[in-house]
Design a protein around this nucleic acid. Sequence first.
DNA 1: ACTCCTTCAGACAGATCTGTCTACATTATG
DNA 2: CATAATGTAGACAGATCTGTCTGAAGGAGT
Lengths: 197, 197
Amino acid sequence: MASVQSTAKPSARERLLAAANELFYAEGVQTVGIDRVIEHAGVAKASLYNTFGGKEQLVRAYLDTRHAATADRLTRAVAERDTPREQMLAVFESQGRQFDRPDFHGCAFIRAGAEASPGGLVQEAADAFRGWMRALFTRLAAEAGAADPDTLGRQLQLLYDGAGISALMDHDSTVASTSHAAATSLIAAATGASAEA
Amino acid sequence: MASVQSTAKPSARERLLAAANELFYAEGVQTVGIDRVIEHAGVAKASLYNTFGGKEQLVRAYLDTRHAATADRLTRAVAERDTPREQMLAVFESQGRQFDRPDFHGCAFIRAGAEASPGGLVQEAADAFRGWMRALFTRLAAEAGAADPDTLGRQLQLLYDGAGISALMDHDSTVASTSHAAATSLIAAATGASAEA
DNA sequence: ACTCCTTCAGACAGATCTGTCTACATTATG
DNA sequence: CATAATGTAGACAGATCTGTCTGAAGGAGT
């Protein structure tokens, strides 16, 4: 099954996923055509169709890759903190660090979902990612002793989504501190703890 | 300049805007082609290009129309309440009523912005709308006596955007109560008032 | 009656997109 | 060496999209 090369050039599949990640995320799924992806990947068109079957499946694979990468990043950020309250805030801090990246272009799932037709592979991938995010927030809310973990988890997801939207559309990376402060308030209100800085 | 007819059929401009509003909002700006818009409007293609100049300008006019309609709706919802605190919550209640509409498909500006190229007419329209929303929240926050009206205004906009995203992508119209409760908490925290139900 | 303006209906050009197909090169393995 | 899998390069078909253009119909005002 290959997958051991290090200096040699990666497989066609890996190059296609890398090119799809750069182009689809930067410019949108609908805007970028197949020809630009294969040119950027340095791959023949037949390789794309042999490997993935079609554009929609490539988009699905691109979203699955981002799902895995984001889940890894947030899981690591959470693991670095000790208390559930700090772990919830660590999610917003990790998100805020993404806002400062020059290649930041908002949440890939929201953007792809806004373009895709309902019921397709894109919506499947978006549902999976959003379910994972909500489960993360809800679990941490429960561990923090929230009276209603499900409600606090949903509230934090609202802030997380809203912050991503604002960072994308308002070009305002200071929104990270806004969402962090709001999360602090909501956590305090839901757990009855003090909201000290 | 016309504009007095009532029973007769509306002008080509009005029919085009109505068709654009239905199709662009329901299926996306990029997905819907010019031919479908003019067919749905019962209008010749030349009328579209004579009236608006091109697709991008039609999209811009469609977004401006939605901006005006949404501003009217929220302004009326705010005017029905007496205190600034209730007026802020009225914005979320009005948004929540939109979630239950069968033709609800999320925030038109976020969806169009996710598809459009940066720096174009779509982004102009989105900036205008988002600026209006933020000014509304900030003004109400100041009138409510918030210690930092700008921060509370931004926080409420996070919730507003997040609620719209969740209603669109999770098909969960109960998010309205979640955002309402979160807004209540954040208002209470920022004004020092009690957050009674 | 005559003219101007809007509108309609649709052909047409030029570009682009997805997906298929052929033919050839490379590489690993038996 | 031989074979099979994988990848490359690019032509090609079929569809679709934006935008332009021609030609005719209808209504309003002088």
